[in-house]
Write a protein that binds this DNA or RNA. Structure first.
Lengths: 183, 183
DNA sequence: TAGAGCATGTAAGCAGTTACATGATTCA
DNA sequence: TGAATCATGTAACTGCTTACATGCTCTA
């Protein structure tokens, strides 16, 4: 019934690959997962605490080389089981929240030129993101030649690329439709 | 700084087109906006109350024909100004949250067949949604022949179609990649 | 007569963001 | 010297979902 807390699974998923600190987890998310599911420190640290209490993770080491102390965690067997069980369940539907689309929906109140301008802004942002995904793709295809480990990472990047392509396509078509109509 | 409450704008946007009750607002959202921004009654009724207090909307009538009483609202001049001002601001970036993609990212822990199965499930859902958008499109193109009023609605439906197409494309390519690799 | 739909609303609680606090090191 | 980065964490707040409460009418 109650909505599941995905934060737990994201942390467990990352820890399953390598031991990490809260700070590291945030960094890993920022370079890979944030396009599909972002997390903030305000979610990570309390969840880490809870996962530790529940025995899903262990504290590995507390180091203090330079600067603040650094707490590294590893996943437990219990945590792995918990993660795998979630992976096997079927997924909830995607949720998209687009302020741009929301505004567009009510745009009969403003000038058509302003709308075209906003769509263009959206297109530029999508282009930039698409380039980012392409750069990731290049890195991954180079690594994946003799190694399958990154196949799922690759597929998520592919998804991002296709998504951005759809955004750009739509922007062009929408602009054309609005430009050809008399206002 | 603080995140804006979009609920206000959605309600004002809908009321700008026609007078509605809270129940009506929910229905309108369910047939059009929910793919880009969904709202629940738990958001609608309190926001309506607040908008009324702030003078952005007025109470039009309280009818009680059959069943429970029905409170209809209309937008005020102040509300229109507030809405237009928001429409002219630039938009926050889209946010996608996909549990499917999240699971995919960590799927090296489960069987490849299970992953392919999950992707197929995702493809079927996307197909169904695509058909829904196409049906909307047909209705709208029929109406729009001599009337431009629904152009923005049409563009949002077009967006939905392109999005679903991207999802389906990706599903096919991902399935192929996973099937061709030895596990 | 039971269930679906109409129609309002509240309360509890989780999810998530943002700002803040602390304090060291490194680099320009 | 000041800013950025490393690294932890908490507190306050807003957003949002879910469940509940109420009670009428219409239809199978």
């Amino acid at each position: 019934m109650a909505r599941e807390n995905r934060t737990k699974y994201i942390i467990l998923g990352l820890l399953n690959h390598e031991d990490l600190s809260g700070y590291d987890i945030k960094k890993r998310i920022d370079v890979s997962l944030k396009h599909f599911w972002d997390l903030s420190y305000g979610q990570i640290y309390p969840t880490l605490k809870q996962l530790l209490e529940d025995g899903y993770i262990h504290k590995v080491e507390v180091t203090k080389e330079a600067g603040p102390e650094r707490i590294t965690y590893s996943i437990s067997e219990k945590g792995k089981l918990y993660l795998v069980q979630w992976l096997k369940e079927s997924s909830e539907e995607d949720k998209l929240r687009s302020e741009m689309l929301l505004k567009l929906f009510f745009s009969s109140l403003i000038e058509r030129e302003d709308v075209i301008h906003a769509i263009n802004e959206f297109a530029v942002k999508s282009h930039n993101k698409a380039q980012l995904f392409s750069a990731f793709e290049d890195q991954l295809t180079a690594v994946m030649k003799d190694n399958d480990d990154h196949v799922y990472y690759y597929l998520s990047v592919l998804f991002g690329k296709k998504l951005m392509k759809a955004y750009i396509d739509w922007s062009e078509e929408a602009t054309e439709i609005l430009s050809n109509k008399k206002s």
